[in-house]
Design a protein around this nucleic acid. Structure first.
Length: 884
RNA sequence: GGGCGGUUAGCUCAGCGGUAGAGCAUCGGUCUUACAAACCGGGGGUCACUGGUUCGAUUCCAGUACCGCCCACCA
């Protein structure tokens, strides 16, 4: 039977089974039974697999495989997101290598170029997911810009426009001077930077002195159109209404009273720049102030900034303005200050708040139904705490800037007629029809990427058409995602689902942990993870990577994942070792199938033998716990339960205990029954493990006799709790304790494994005696004992090691082998250990309050244990005395 | 500024009112014919700190420190 290699070789198995599964159509839904549906978070087309993806999609696959084996009609829809800004950036970078910019190509050719790039290099990540083993329905793969998807996006825009939820507005938005587009509030990253706070002097026109204002951005003063003070601020009451001459510019601006000004900050007076600050914009509206744009979309000062500054970069302008003010004595002081700074979360460029005309979505009324479904538990967050974070955002929701000044994306379906009317339509034809004879031009901008992904669950199933998929598979079962897109994506999907489907998009939202590096910081591509999932798969196999991740995926608790050092990643290595353990246990079973391996009689599983009753009991407890854990998204518990059952219970005890019969040369009925039992346990374990380790389990399963087409089509085990046998468990515990005690004596007294011992055992009752007699051969084998002598009382022996086990006193005669001093030391240690425990118990039992207030069973338990310890100590002390 | 998580053996993490667990690492011993990526045995923790509640706290409450994350229009 040497045709089975000693170690599991993942690569052959992975390639072979993945294509077999895929070509046989196993990843597609069956079409009958209860649906269980997941639409994956679509990764960016430009993306490649990083460790966070590997975790997220492994969870997807484990759950979908588990449900599929349980008989659900499972569907997991994959796809990619066009990721407007990110993708455009990548292609522009390509062009730059050729010395071109997108403007050299023009819009149309640039879009073509992006298309080519996406076809050629995009979606690589989906191919990488196959390496992980993901059983997604590739025939339903979607892209947020495929034809059907465009239809969904247009439908939404038109509907929202008709319902008055979309509007065009001029206001201060977040502008990225590098990406040259507006971005929404949640695409802005806030950081604190060391900087300065500048206190500037603004003179009153009437010569009655000056007023001091504080700012972190002196260059913006060129666009000031007022200074504001708090109406309650008595220091300024007499000055309100006065005219100020704006330094360097000479513009006359008023001193207005507005609540926004906080008297306790700086001088209490704040300069107002309505075109370059969202708050100032609001103040401007309240006081009817002019809006002067002085910084253009590239972050360069424009003509309105004045001839001295026009053309300067905003940061250069800052220095120049400052120098000019200083030379005029208009800088009161400069202090160190931590400046809250807004960055573009894509490119980390400092955001320029800019007055600009954009398209917005009114969010308040969309948010309400989406809040309600979470409040009423129709949508459940796992872990629950995210519901509160969701409410905080949803209840203070602000309008959504959806237009982007990019070329790649969904072009905004708004056309303007020559007389200035907006025509909103699903297509150009429709727009032309609506416009009649008037010439129309389409809006140049595209939609925020998240505007399209907001429809993902329904759109990938066919919406806005009423398709069979949509009927059958919507709403979906669970959304599994990373924490950072809770607002950006999850919240918006719930809103669109409620709005267009009048139904929740999914009932569970599982936010999985973030993978951290050794320092406890989140792994991100920009920081460099030092970890490539594909390298890990190449090195250790996909199952090992999957298991290594799942075994630490507690419900919502981030975990650290080491990087590769000296070519090794110890956590994945551990999991690989487990895979190898499964492989070798299976190898043992397969090597002992015997000639009649095809035979299988269900009654052979039944057995009176302790080990058999015990392993069946443990197996069913395991099945029960694994199913519960999976159902509760406790992937770590499922993985650990299986690890422990398989390695400790099955390999270390059951296989060892069954070896003599399973590996026997004579194929008696009894032996064949034993072989069938062990196959049964192994086969069930493989099915249990399959969602976590699909390739390994299939590779082994296929070698088992008569198992059918694929483990993927096998039924997931269901616990039979009638099989849980507490008596067998406690008896087995005693047998294990007895064997361990003997091994321990052997090890501590340095007795070679080769020397066969005689064991005297004095059971305390008839049950204990029966236990030893019935399991004698196995105890002898595992404890490496030649003979077990059962006695009523231990004989006096000249030199022997003694020990206590629940239900027994034992002695091992060791003529010539024993080191008396060592044995004394060993016994003393046993006594001390018990003394310490007894001391603690005694002090509690002496405490009146404890006796009065603690529950009776706790007191009783303490009393019993105390008695037991005292009895054991007496025996041990007697043993110790016998040496002298 | 507000909020949320974390702090348990050398490392990665469970546990969360009755006196601490796992895996790995470490130490000692094994080629015991499935597996040395293994087997057998051992050692190792004042459960971050300070108070409080309780007969009893790692576990509950309050506060402190440190680490991490999210949100925020104080110029």
């Amino acid at each position: 039977m040497s045709d089975i290699p000693k170690t599991y070789a993942p690569h052959g198995a992975e390639a072979k089974w993945y294509s077999a599964w895929d070509s046989r159509g196993y990843f597609k839904p069956r079409g009958d039974g209860r649906p269980y549906v997941i639409t994956i978070p679509p990764p960016n087309v430009t993306g490649s697999l990083h460790i966070g993806h590997a975790l997220g999609y492994t969870i997807h696959d484990a759950l979908i495989r588990w449900k599929r084996m349980q008989g659900y009609d499972t569907l997991c829809v994959p796809g990619t997101d066009h990721a407007g800004i990110a993708t455009q950036n990548v292609v522009e970078k390509e062009l730059r290598k050729e010395g071109l910019s997108r403007h050299d190509l023009g819009r149309e050719r640039f879009i073509e170029r992006v298309g080519t790039w996406v076809d050629e290099y995009g979606g690589m990540i989906l191919r990488q997911l196959r390496r992980l083993g993901c059983s997604f329905d590739w025939s339903r793969t979607r892209f947020t810009m495929d034809d059907g998807y465009v239809k969904a996006v247009m439908e939404c825009f038109v509907k929202w426009w008709e319902e008055g939820l979309i509007y065009r507005g001029k206001r201060v938005i977040n502008w990225c001077p590098r990406c040259l587009t507006a971005i929404s509030d949640i695409e802005v990253e806030h950081v604190d930077r060391v900087g300065k706070l500048y206190h500037l002097r603004y003179p009153f026109k009437d010569g009655s002195g000056l007023i001091v204002v504080a700012t972190t951005r002196p260059e913006s003063m060129l666009g000031d159109t007022a200074v504001a003070v708090n109406p309650q601020d008595e220091r300024y009451t007499e000055h309100v209404g006065k005219i100020i001459i704006l330094p360097l510019v000479g513009r006359e601006i008023p001193l207005v009273a507005d609540d926004y000004a906080k008297p306790e900050f700086g001088s209490g007076a704040v300069k107002v720049t309505p075109a370059h600050d969202a708050n100032d914009f609001e103040i401007g509206l309240r006081h009817n102030l002019p809006q002067v744009i002085v910084i253009d979309e590239r972050g360069t000062m424009n003509a309105d900034a004045g001839a001295a500054y026009a053309g300067l970069d905003r940061f250069e302008a800052r220095e120049r303005v400052l120098a000019d003010l200083q030379s005029r004595g208009l800088v009161e002081r400069i202090e160190d200050y931590t400046v809250p700074t807004a960055l573009c979360d894509r490119c980390k460029t400092v955001i320029e708040p800019l007055l600009s005309e954009q398209w917005f979505v009114r969010m308040k009324e969309l948010a309400q139904p989406a809040i309600d479904v979470v409040k009423s538990d129709r949508v459940r967050f796992i872990p629950e705490r995210y519901a509160r974070i969701y409410y905080d955002w949803m209840e203070n929701i602000r309008d959504w800037t959806i237009s982007r000044q990019l070329w790649f994306g969904h072009r905004i379906p708004v056309w303007t007629t020559d007389d200035g009317e907006y025509i909103v339509a699903r297509s150009e034809e429709e727009a032309r029809a609506k416009a009649g004879d008037r010439p129309i031009t389409q809006d140049e901008d595209v939609l925020d990427t998240w505007f399209s992904s907001a429809h993902w669950p329904q759109a990938v199933l066919g919406w806005p058409d009423r398709t069979a998929d949509l009927d059958r598979y919507y709403p979906t079962s669970v959304l599994i995602t990373a924490r950072e897109i809770l607002y950006l994506w999850v919240a918006r999907m719930i809103m669109t689902g409620m709005h267009f489907m009048n139904e929740i998009p999914f009932s569970d939202v599982y936010i999985y942990p973030t993978v951290l590096n050794e320092e406890g910081k989140r792994m991100s591509k920009s920081l460099g993870t030092g970890l490539d999932p594909l390298d890990l798969i190449d090195h250790y196999g996909a199952d090992a990577l999957r298991f290594a991740l799942l075994v630490r995926t507690a419900k919502g608790q981030d975990f650290r994942f080491a990087s590769v050092t000296n070519g090794r990643q110890r956590q994945v290595e551990e999991a690989r070792n487990f895979a190898n353990k499964v492989w070798n246990a299976s190898r043992f079973v397969l090597m002992n199938l015997g000639d009649n391996s095809a035979e299988h009689k269900p009654e052979w599983v039944e057995s009176e033998a302790l080990a058999d009753r015990w392993i069946l009991s443990r197996l069913n407890e395991t099945i029960d716990e694994v199913n519960r854990a999976m159902d509760d998204y406790r992937m770590n518990d499922a993985a650990q339960t299986l690890y422990h059952f398989f390695w400790d219970d099955f390999c270390d005890w059951y296989i060892e205990l069954s070896k003599s019969s399973v590996a026997s040369r004579e194929a008696t009925e009894e032996v064949r029954a034993a072989r069938n039992r062990i196959i049964y346990i192994l086969e069930t374990s493989l099915r249990l493990l399959h969602p976590l380790m699909p390739f390994l389990t299939e590779e082994i399963w296929q070698r088992l006799p008569h198992r059918g087409e694929s483990i993927m089509l096998a039924r997931y085990p269901e616990a039979d709790l009638a099989r849980v046998d507490n008596e067998a468990a406690s008896q087995m515990q005693t047998v294990i304790a007895l064997i361990t005690r003997v091994r321990n004596i052997r090890s501590e007294l340095n007795i070679p494994a080769s020397s066969r011992l005689r064991l005297y055992a004095a059971p305390t009752d008839a049950a204990a005696e029966r236990l030893v007699r019935q399991n004698e051969s196995q105890i002898k084998r595992l404890a490496r004992v030649e003979e077990i002598v059962i006695v009523g009382q231990l004989p006096t022996l000249d030199s022997a090691a003694r020990g206590l086990v629940a239900g027994f006193e034992i002695a091992v005669p060791l003529e010539g082998l024993i080191d008396i001093a060592k044995e004394q030391e060993r016994i003393s240690k046993e006594i001390t250990r018990r003394e310490n425990e007894a001391k603690g118990l005694a002090s509690r039992l002496d405490n009146h309050s404890f006796l009065e207030r603690a529950p009776h069973d706790v007191v009783e338990q303490a009393r019993d244990r105390h008695q037991e310890l005292i009895a054991e100590m007496e025996k041990l002390t007697a043993t110790l005395r016998s040496f002298s």
